[in-house]
Amino acid sequence: MTGPVLFWVQHLLGIGHQRRSAAIARACAAAGLEVHYVSGGMPVPHLDLARCRFHQLPPCRSPDDSFSALIDDQGQPVSPAFWSARQSLLTQLVTDIRPAVFMTETYPFGRRAFRHELRPVLEQVLKTGVNVASVRDILVRKPDPAKYAQAADLIDRYFTAVLVHEPDAFTGFDNSFPFSGQIAGRLHKTGYVAERPLPPGNPDTSREPSGDILVSGGGSDVALPLFRAALAARRHSRQANRNIWRILVGQGVSEAEFQSLIKDAEDGVVVERTRADFHDLLSRARASVSLAGYNTVIDGLVAGLPMLLVPFATATETEQTDRARALAEAGHAITHDLATINSLSLAAAVDRTLDLPRQNHNTAWFRGAEQSAAILHQLATQTRE
């Protein structure tokens, strides 16, 4: 007998956490598991959850990239009544579903603001099931080392397994979490979670693609400096001044800003909202220009494209910079600082990027969703035997 799996996912700004978790949830459903998916973030249009059952907690988000506060769907600061409503609903869901596996996305390696709603549930699950943590390849660096120790202690106390979504031979997580040795017995490297599997065969590396320069920035508005630089960069490029530059703008960018980008676009530059056929566009592109979020990078690696990574970085957001640097050092990408980008520097960086070859990557790197589903299936079965 195999019991149900319950996912808890909370995004605050961009939607990468939701996209990655949804890919794992779909793989679990395809493996025959009963999957419940609980989201505490703002609704995400067109989130593909296949046969999974979706449950929405009262949503909240960060109003800006400082992540210093949380607001509800009315733009008001979250209140004690808000937290109480969330915790009551989540507790009731766990009581009704009785999950064999309860999986938290990022927590306890992040999302500390939600600890008061999660810890009672973690205790509750342990009576009938197991807790699992899901975390991407690289963590945000923390100025307070005690927070690393607290996360390791919570893993020891509550969690049976930690699914780290990077290939086994990679060390992004180990390098960014100094207590990885303490929890080594619980760690499972799953490989990268790709929203779309590798196409049959490998990318054609024998020809120079003639497709678009595809500029994307995820679901939030933090990529606006990149988008504005791209509006006039095409004419300054030596190698891509005859290609279409296609800028895909996420829903987190206001309609006023979106219309301003359309108005200011030069000839040969197309500005659109993010498209459902993004992966098809990527497979036909000449190069990818993007931030360095997990999902965007994996999409580029799957496509085998030359990538220009422009990481979003603040004093408290270091993960994209670390990921971009690692990929550049491995010869998979060129990088550019978001804070200093302009049309001329972007054009020059794109030209350097186009000197990179299209690449074949190990297909085993990108089976993170399937490997995660296999681990969760095994745990859900063992728990109910």
Rank of each mutant, 00 (worst) to 15 (best):
A233K: 00
A194D: 06
L198D: 08
L224W: 10
D204I: 15
G217C: 11
D212I: 11
P209W: 11
N241Y: 05
F177W: 01
N175W: 04
L248Y: 05
G250C: 11
R207S: 15
A229S: 14
F177G: 00
A229K: 09
L231F: 05
S180R: 06
S210W: 13
R246I: 01
F227Y: 15
E195C: 06
A229D: 12
L214D: 04
F227S: 03
A229W: 06
G211M: 11
N202E: 15
R235M: 10
P178W: 00
E208I: 15
G250E: 14
P197Q: 07
F227Q: 00
A194R: 01
P178R: 02
R235N: 09
R246D: 02
R186P: 06
A194F: 02
A232E: 08
I213Q: 01
R242H: 14
G218D: 08
R196Q: 15
P209I: 12
N243A: 12
V215H: 00
A223Y: 10
R228P: 14
R234T: 01
F179R: 01
I213E: 03
K189Q: 11
L198K: 02
P199I: 02
F227W: 10
V193M: 09
H188W: 08
P178S: 03
L248C: 14
R235E: 11
G181L: 02
G252N: 12
S180A: 12
A232K: 03
R228W: 11
F179D: 05
S237T: 05
L198Q: 07
N243K: 09
D212W: 07
L224G: 06
S220N: 15
R207E: 12
R228A: 05
S176M: 02
G201E: 02
H188K: 14
N202I: 06
I244N: 03
P225N: 11
W245A: 00
F179T: 01
V222P: 03
G211E: 13
A230V: 12
Q251P: 11
R196N: 15
R186L: 07
N243Y: 09
G191N: 05
N241C: 09
A230E: 03
G252W: 05
S206L: 12
N243V: 05
G219W: 04
Q182G: 03
R234S: 04
R228C: 12
P200L: 01
V193N: 02
G218F: 09
L187D: 09
Q251V: 11
I244M: 06
R228V: 13
I244T: 14
E208S: 14
G191S: 02
W245G: 01
A184G: 03
D212C: 09
R242N: 13
R207N: 10
